[in-house]
Amino acid sequence: MPVNGRSHLRVARPSRDLAVAERFWVRGLGLDVVWRAESGPEPGEHDLLMVGWPDAGWHLELVHEPAVEPRPTEEDLLVIYVDGPVPDDLVTRLEEHGGKRVPSPNPYWNRWGVTIEDPDGYRLVLCERGWSPA
């Protein structure tokens, strides 16, 4: 199978606490748990949590390994195009489940969306615009 626009995308990043991350991404944003694994006795194994929407062409993999700390910057963004106003109740739910609304250093995201920092410090942008590559 060739690599193309239909290839599934996985975004992987470290997490300090998978239970806290799950609360934000699943109970806050509404993603489903796609897969979960606990580390075993083999070297290099780690706890992981994969979350996403069943019909999406992507998912988020969160990995907990005590020796690895998340190191997000203000520009490490996961942007979801809502194609309409960002629901206030969604922002409230994300905040209630461990997120923190923050201003973006990029005025575009402040104008067109809402930026929420997840419990590991990575940023989720809910953009009111629709996505069109043109």
Score class of each variant (00 low, 15 high):
40 G>L: 09
85 P>W: 00
83 D>N: 11
80 I>V: 15
87 P>M: 01
52 G>A: 04
35 W>I: 00
61 E>M: 07
76 D>T: 05
37 A>Q: 14
82 V>Q: 11
73 T>Q: 07
76 D>I: 02
34 V>M: 15
38 E>F: 11
93 R>C: 02
44 G>C: 08
47 D>C: 05
77 L>T: 03
59 H>A: 09
39 S>R: 15
46 H>S: 13
49 L>S: 04
75 E>G: 12
88 D>Y: 01
26 V>M: 07
88 D>E: 14
78 L>K: 02
58 W>V: 10
76 D>H: 13
26 V>D: 06
86 V>C: 04
55 D>T: 14
24 F>D: 02
39 S>V: 11
33 V>A: 06
42 E>Q: 15
57 G>A: 14
62 L>N: 03
34 V>G: 05
83 D>A: 13
87 P>L: 01
57 G>V: 10
48 L>R: 12
93 R>E: 02
26 V>C: 14
68 V>M: 04
52 G>H: 06
50 M>D: 09
53 W>M: 12
72 P>F: 02
78 L>R: 00
63 V>Q: 06
82 V>A: 08
72 P>H: 03
26 V>Q: 06
47 D>H: 08
37 A>T: 08
73 T>N: 05
85 P>K: 06
48 L>Q: 14
67 A>R: 14
31 L>K: 03
89 D>I: 00
